[in-house]
Amino acid sequence: MNDRKIRVLIAKPGLDGHDRGAKIIAQALRDAGMEVIYTGLRQTPEMIAEAALQEDVDVVGLSILSGAHMALVPRIIELIRKNGQEEVKVFVGGIIPEEDIPPLKEAGVYAVYGPGTSTEVVVRDIQEAVLGEKV
């Protein structure tokens, strides 16, 4: 019997201390039947990449409200890819200015979510991205 579950790492890189959004997303993904690994505040890119590796996740969700996304996100993706996790999808949520979204996607971000995004959208996108089908 095969009991595969979608595994997601929810992480907060950088120095801002607001993890309400990250926790809400973590809960919504849990309620959608996923196994969510939550790592808490103030994680370095190295810590996040290492957790993603050890936990063999399908998805990494990054919550950033500090404005440091252009420095942190590409670095995290680089480390994840360097570890050999080519297929891991990276999502970013938080306060991201419109003009930063194209370069983030270029750096390998699968999707960016701003404030007020419905959790249903995030759940559906992740299921699509991992299972490779419209749900």
Partner: peptide, 9 residues
């Protein structure tokens, strides 16, 4: 739901 929040890390 079968989901889980794994927070030990």
């Amino acid at each position: 739901t079968g989901g889980a929040l794994l927070g030990d890390r």
